[in-house]
């Protein structure tokens, strides 16, 4: 019962944030909607006993990645409403058509009763005694053990990846394109 209420509230927050992200006129409001989505997802992770992942999501995604997005939005100066004209004229109707088709398909399946596994309790329906696995407790100790014992190579590979990404970002930030015609640029 508690989990049902939590699921309804959190999915409202998450989907509301996602919709305001894609429909928001002002990119800063879109970033705030995305932030709401990330927070809602972090709480969902806590419900599923993935504590470490939830906290790392808040620290990395909500705390660092979205701050970076906000900085770039303010720097680029797109904080005014963007123009809505679209290059390819048929793209918007095509996208909306495809989405409508998917929703019709899914809705048809749900309404005709074939998609009962969304709303029914699988164990009770099948009648057999299935042992539902206990969700693992995602505390730091267990994640740390798993990371160093089983997933050591991906761990080291992501360390190298982070160094590469930092170096790449710095190189891109300091890159000054050399123009062959005008000499005055090299005076910088």
């Amino acid at each position: 019962m508690v989990e049902l209420i939590l699921f309804v509230v959190l999915s409202t927050v998450v989907i509301g944030g996602a919709l305001s992200m894609i429909l928001g006129r002002n990119p800063v409001y879109a970033a705030m909607g995305m932030l709401a989505t990330l927070f809602g997802l972090a709480v969902i992770y806590v419900i599923q006993l993935a504590h470490f992942v939830a906290v790392v999501q808040v620290i990395v995604y909500a705390g660092a990645v979205m701050t970076l997005f906000l900085f770039v939005i303010m720097f680029i100066g797109v904080d005014k409403a963007q123009s809505l004209d679209e290059g390819l004229a048929w793209q918007r109707p095509a996208v909306l058509g495809v989405v409508a088709a998917i929703l019709a398909m899914v809705g048809g399946l749900v309404l005709s009763g074939r998609w009962e596994w969304i709303t029914a309790d699988r164990v009770a329906l099948s009648g057999q005694v299935i042992e539902i696995p206990v969700p693992p407790n995602g505390t730091i100790e267990s994640i740390g053990e798993s990371l160093i014992n089983r997933w050591l190579l991906p761990f080291e590979a992501t360390a190298v990846l982070l160094i590469i990404a930092s170096v790449g970002a710095i190189v891109l930030a300091f890159y000054r394109p050399r123009r062959l015609q005008s000499v005055g640029d090299d005076a910088e």
Binding site: F52, V60, P135, G138, I143, A165
Partner: peptide, 26 residues
Amino acid sequence: GGAVGNLDGQMAVFFVLVVAAAEVAV
């Protein structure tokens, strides 16, 4: 990961998070 019962799901999320952060920077 929670439905299957081991920690592999959360480990995958950890790596996806790290890669996404690096990708956002670049």
